[in-house]
Amino acid sequence: MAEKYKRTDGRAYDEMREIKAKAGVIKNADGSAMFSFGDSIAIAAVYGPRQLHPQHLQDPSKCLLRCTYDMLSFSVNERKKPGPSRRSTEISYVTGKALEPVLQLDAYPNTVIDVFISIIQADASTRCAGINAASIALANAGLPMSELVTAVSMGKVAGNILVDLSKDEEDYRGEKIKETTDIPVAYLPRSDKISLLQLDGRIKVAELREAIKAAKKACLKINEIQREALKKIKE
């Protein structure tokens, strides 16, 4: 049974934080974007397709999509040591897997598309903000994409399914239900498929079903905002 839970910032259970998106924020890059959920801000830059070094990584059948996710040292409360960690390596990997299905990688054999994601300010849901930014950046780079990838983190707090958890909510401990479940989801709205799904916590199948349903709904809204950001740069 769910406990009564009031969200720290007064949001409805299915309400995301304020979302901002902007394309073309890094001039040197072939494509770039900023995406934020409230105080979580991600910037992404795309370089490529370009020559891949070292050469032994080259694949004559397709282009390599190489994602690098990292948090800036001052994006979190206690300074994060600069440079990659086990966590950032894993997130880089799953981000690549989330983005890959919408790209036509076999069109550019032997090359690489580099996607760099930096979290400049963190308040949970950073990998989802990163995926949303990267997706806009890839489109901004003019790469053919079957659709935009959209991502949102779902959560179960005190037994309730919530959309877009903040850090306070992630750390919340209910009176009886102590655990918080964190479920980042990346959704491909046009093909109605899920390209990233992770889960940490404790959840029943019916609840997971409810969470995914809510994630899809939220992602459709995010998709609109991503498209707006891309349209704006055209004007």
Binding site: A45, Y47, T68, P82, F116
Partner: peptide, 9 residues
């Protein structure tokens, strides 16, 4: 200082 590859080729 970290020269992020994001900032330049």
């Amino acid at each position: 200082a970290e020269l992020l590859p994001m900032a330049s080729e």
